[in-house]
């Protein structure tokens, strides 16, 4: 089932085009890696999808609902971490989750406790977020993102600040979620992680979409046995050999 469909997305600020001709889709169960150099337009695309910034041209459909016309229905089953997780520092982790849960129907204490267990914050959930490490804040952000049983999850640098164990747990969580049919869009500079968890790649260069393919096909851009990093450098990072 098609969860996300972006068609000819364009964002222009004054006379500067930030992104244009961005078209791709994501189906249930897909784990799509959004890659590109710094300033390529990845975060802009994420913000366009989530309605945080206005679309200049094009459409975004989430579960068939237009993000501009039917925002509430479109965003209802979406979870997201954008740029870095932001929480209310003076509140406890639990209070932050309670506030998040209040935005949805039928998300109560049981679900809060469940996501706390999933992200491994049981021992610190009652403490103030200002006392958390970067990794704990990241886990809290993920907990908040999955609170409402999303059908579409957007994760911007999800392994940022996590230790090795945390990264492995994150990988397993992503796999588990995708096995349950959740569509996931991951934006990350950690290409080895992208390689391990994603089945598709959407590559952005200078605000334009340069690749939308499976991981294996994308790697073939460099050579038969190349790594994702090689393909990235060839297609996105420097001169395109093709």
């Amino acid at each position: 089932m098609e969860v996300l469909k972006c068609e000819n997305l364009k964002k222009k600020i004054k006379n500067k085009v930030i992104v244009e001709n961005i078209s791709f889709s994501i189906n249930s169960g897909d784990v799509v890696g959004l890659i590109g150099a710094n300033g390529a337009g990845k975060t802009t695309i994420i913000k366009l999808i989530l309605g945080l910034i206005k679309i200049t041209e094009g459409t975004v459909l989430i579960n068939g609902f237009d993000i501009q016309k039917d925002f509430v229905k479109a965003i209802d089953k979406v979870g997201a971490i954008v740029e870095s997780p932001a929480s209310y520092m003076y509140l406890s982790g639990y209070d932050n989750l309670k506030i998040a849960a209040n935005n949805f129907k039928n998300i109560g204490k049981e679900r809060i406790n469940e996501v706390v267990k999933i992200v491994g914050l049981e021992n610190r959930i009652k403490d103030k977020v200002s006392t958390y490490s970067l990794g704990m804040k990241q886990r809290l952000g993920i907990a908040e993102a999955i609170l409402n049983h999303p059908e579409f999850l957007i994760l911007d640098e999800p392994t940022n600040g996590l230790d090795v164990e945390g990264i492995i747990e994150m990988r397993e969580l992503i796999k588990k979620l995708s096995d349950n049919g959740i569509a996931i869009l991951i934006s990350s500079h950690n290409l080895s992680e992208i390689d391990k968890v994603c089945n598709r790649i959407v590559a952005i260069k200078n605000g334009k979409l340069v690749a939308d393919d499976t991981i294996d096909n994308f790697k073939l851009i460099a050579s038969k046995d190349s790594t994702l990093e090689d393909a990235f450098i060839k297609k996105v990072g420097g001169t395109d050999i093709d």
């Binding site: 989530l50 309605g51 945080l52 509430v72 229905k73 209802d76 740029e83």
Partner: peptide, 9 residues
């Protein structure tokens, strides 16, 4: 951004 990505106008 947390607030504006929730299902509320």
């Amino acid at each position: 951004k947390n607030l504006l990505t929730k299902p509320h106008k």
